[in-house]
């Protein structure tokens, strides 16, 4: 059996409220709140990026795993906001946690499912016996163009998982990936902000892939929504994951724990992985968790996890996800937010 040996999440402390963004662009904040179910989002400081958040999340994952960093055979970072265009994020993360030099390293990209890709590949390598442990991270400092609908959701956060065969805190019972070529969201080379297909990102993209992946993995596992304790889906806003869960037959109570986006925003590659960390913070041994990511372009990775007795023993060794979301928040004005996100261009 393979699964998760350690996990950790990191959320920056800065927030901006949806009203603050809407006021700048003359938008109807109440309509956005109703339509997207978004209230506020996290904002990275100028000194935070995918690498720094990944290091923090990875250190918490190591604290729970209790394994020697030198025994980690691969470090995979999934993100669409790697700080360098050419130079890996993973080398910095691996060096910072002490996993170098006997280590394979790669950066993954697949819009918002780069993190679950890293998890999928990490699990597979461990299952194949190629290495004892793999660190898989999903995180982003998401970009949304000023005034675009994405600006209300694009946020920052990271989740890290150490995959292994022993000392599991959650067993991976099944994996399944569903993928087609569906161009609903993209960023061309040298472009600063991504572009999207508006409503095209909904039915033929997000809903088709998340439903297909979730239905198929449950079918292969011989499970129905009633058999599963918690479900977490990719969270581009508050509304989509809730709606797709209801379409699949889940009740809101099954989705509540991992549903972070109304107050966190869309952390892109970190979205469903961070939801999983919030579930692992409370899940009881034996409980089942369905996680399904979504990456534009487009595809979904689905996982069914089963919590073990060890989860209860180790989860207190690092900060929980929900308190990071709810406590010690610093609210920004739009001007401060614009400076933090590099939206103000200074003269050289």
């Amino acid at each position: 059996m393979v699964g998760i040996v350690g996990y950790g999440a990191y959320i920056p402390r800065q927030r901006i409220k949806l009203e603050e963004i809407a006021a700048v662009w003359g938008a109807d904040a109440a309509a956005f709140k109703r339509g997207l179910m978004l209230y506020e989002k996290s904002v990275p400081s100028p000194d935070q990026d995918t690498i720094t958040m990944s290091v923090e999340a990875a250190r918490w994952a190591l604290a729970r795993a209790g394994v020697d960093p030198k025994s980690i055979g691969a470090v995979y970072i999934g993100s669409e906001s790697h700080p360098y265009a050419v130079k890996p994020s993973g080398t910095v993360v691996a060096e910072a946690i002490g996993a170098t030099p006997d280590c394979h390293c790669a950066d993954f990209e697949f819009a918002c499912k780069a993190g679950s890709e890293a998890m999928f590949v990490g699990l597979s390598l461990v299952k194949a016996g190629e290495m004892d442990y793999v660190l898989a991270v999903g995180g982003d400092t998401s970009q949304g163009a000023p005034g675009d609908a994405l600006e209300y959701s694009a946020s920052a956060g990271s989740a890290a998982f150490i995959m292994g065969r022993e000392k599991l805190l959650a067993e991976c019972l099944h994996t399944y990936s569903f993928m087609t070529d569906t161009p609903d969201f993209w960023r061309r080379e040298y472009e600063f902000y991504p572009r999207h297909g508006g409503r095209f990102t909904g039915e033929p993209a997000y809903f088709k892939h998340v439903q297909s992946a979730s239905r198929e993995i449950m079918s292969r596992a011989g499970l129905t929504p009633k058999d599963i304790n918690y479900a977490v889906f990719h969270q581009p806003n508050g509304k989509f994951p809730r709606n797709v869960g209801r379409m699949l037959g889940f009740k809101d109570e099954q989705m509540e724990t991992g549903w972070l986006s109304p107050w966190l925003g869309n952390t892109y590659s970190g979205a469903s992985p961070m939801g999983l960390t919030a579930i692992l913070d409370v899940a009881k041994p034996g409980e089942l968790i369905l996680m399904c990511s979504y990456g534009s372009g487009a595809g979904s990775d689905a996982f069914i996890w089963k919590a073990t007795e060890r989860l209860v023993e180790v989860r207190e060794k690092a900060p929980f996800t929900r308190p990071q979301l709810d406590e010690n928040k610093v609210y920004l004005t739009y001007g401060q937010y614009a400076k933090c996100r590099g939206k103000i261009v200074k003269a050289d």
């Binding site: 400081s45 100028p46 000194d47 990026d49 720094t52 290091v55 360098y84």
Partner: peptide, 14 residues
């Protein structure tokens, strides 16, 4: 906490 300390301009290392 692990942070970005400085950037070497627009083109240099982080």
């Amino acid at each position: 906490e692990f942070r970005l300390i400085q950037k070497d301009g627009h083109h240099g290392i982080l």
